[in-house]
Amino acid sequence: MINVGVLIYPEIQALDLAAAVDCFGQVNQTLKSTGQQPYYRLFTIGQTTTAVKAENGLQLSAEYTLQDCPAIDYLVLPGGAGARPLAADPAFMAWLQQCASSAQKLLSICTGAYLLAHSGLLDGKPLATHWRFAKDLQQRYPKVQVNATELYVMVDKFYSSGGMTAGIDLCLAVIEQDLGVAIAQAIAQELVMYLRRSGKQSQYASPLKIQHSAEQRFTRLQSWLLDNLAQPVSVADMAAQTALSERQFRRVFQSRFAMSPMQYLQQLRLDKARSLLLCDGYSLKHISQQVGVNDPRNLIRMFNKAFGCTPGEYQKHFR
C-alpha cells in the first residue's frame, strides 16, 4: 500500500487539498467495489493537529504532525496563500528536505510550488504553477525553470501542476502510472470530468471530446499534436498518426468531434498562444513560431476571429 501524506497549513486552498484526497480516495472505493484491496493509505499532516482555517474559512485539522506521521511514499503539497510564509519557515523546510530524500514522489498543486522552489530541490529543473504566480515565483527563485503554460510537469520524483483543477489532472496521471489507464479513466468518470488532459495541454485549453477510452488513437493523436505545434502539420500527417487513410480520417474525425481536423489543430494552437501571452518576455513573433504560425499577422487575424480581440488586447486584459 502506498502511503500518501497530504499537507495541511493555515490559509491552504481547500480545493487543492480536496483534489488529491478525492482522486486517491476514489481509487480505493473503486477497487473495493470490485473486491480488491485499497491501494493508497491517505492521511493528512501538519505542523500541529490543532484546527487551522483554509483560505475559504473552512476549519481543517491534520491527523498527524510532521514529527509523528507515518512514513511517506507520496507527499502532496497543496497551494494557498499560506504557502509563501510556510516556505520561509526553516523548521518546515528542513523537514521537507528530509522527507524528499526518502519519499518516492512529491506533488505540488498550484502555489504549492513555492514550497518546492524554496527547498532548492528543483534548482535547474522545471516546476509548474498557476500562470498568475509564475512571474513572482521566477523572480524569487531564479534557479528554477518555472513553467506557466503546461497543466503539469513531471521530472524525477517531483510532480507539479498549474491551477487548482490541474491538480486533478496531475493526480490522475500518477494513478495511471500506478494502476493503468483503465483505472485512471474510471476515476475521471466518477469525478464527472469532461476531459482527462495531458500535462502538455495548455492551462487554457478548451475541453474537447477527443479523449475517451474507446478512442485511444485520437488520444495519441492529441499528444502528438501538442508535441508538434511548432511544426507544419497537414491532415495527411494527422491521418498517419491514427493509421487511417486521409479520406477516412477526415470523415471519422468530423463525425466524432463535429469539427474538421484543421479546426481542432487551430484550437490547440490558439490555446497555446493564449497561455504564452501570459508569460513575460515572449514577443509576438516568438509566440507565433512556437504555435506553428510563422507570420504574426496571421496569428492576429486568428485571434480576432476566435476571440474578438488582438493578442495584445488579450494580454492587457488578463495580465
Rank of each mutant, 00 (worst) to 15 (best):
S33T: 11
N28V: 07
Y74T: 07
Q222A: 15
F318T: 11
A18D: 08
R250D: 13
K135F: 10
C99V: 09
G124F: 02
Q222M: 13
M93N: 06
N228F: 08
H130I: 04
F92V: 04
I45R: 00
A20Y: 01
Y64K: 05
E215L: 15
L151M: 13
R297C: 09
G120M: 05
T49I: 11
L77S: 01
E176L: 07
L115I: 05
P296S: 11
Y141C: 00
P38C: 09
L107W: 03
I287E: 01
D271V: 05
R140M: 10
I2V: 13
T49S: 07
A186H: 01
V235G: 06
A205M: 06
D156N: 11
A54K: 03
P78W: 03
Q315R: 15
Q59P: 10
G5Q: 04
Q266C: 10
T49K: 07
A113S: 08
L172A: 02
A103D: 04
H212T: 10
F158I: 06
M262V: 11
F158N: 01
P232N: 09
P10G: 06
I175T: 02
P142H: 06
A258R: 14
L107H: 04
E215A: 14
K200P: 02
L66F: 10
N147V: 05
E150K: 09
A128C: 11
T165K: 01
C69A: 14
V233T: 08
D136S: 11
K305V: 13
S119E: 03
N294K: 14
A14G: 08
G57Q: 09
L116K: 00
A243N: 15
T30A: 15
K305D: 13
V252A: 10
Q98V: 07
L284C: 10
G46F: 01
C309T: 10
N56R: 09
S61L: 10
A243F: 15
Y74W: 08
L15D: 03
A188L: 03
Q267F: 08
G46L: 05
A134D: 03
Q185C: 10
M154W: 08
S102Q: 14
D123A: 09
Q145M: 12
K157P: 00
P78H: 04
P90K: 06
N147F: 05
A91T: 14
W224E: 03
G35T: 07
A88R: 11
Q315F: 13
Q98T: 12
Q216W: 12
P38H: 07
L115Q: 02
F218V: 07
L191P: 00
I175G: 00
M238S: 03
R84Q: 12
Q177Y: 02
I12G: 01
T219N: 09
V6Y: 01
S33R: 14
E63L: 12
L58I: 13
K200Q: 11
Q37H: 12
D280G: 09
N147G: 03
T34D: 11
L127A: 02
I168A: 01
M262A: 12
Q266N: 13
V4S: 00
C110L: 05
H317E: 15
P232T: 09
V76A: 03
Q290T: 09
L278S: 05
T50G: 13
L106V: 08
A186P: 00
R220Q: 15
D295N: 15
L121V: 03
N298F: 14
Y194V: 11
Q37C: 08
N56W: 06
F218L: 07
Q29M: 14
W95K: 05
I45Q: 01
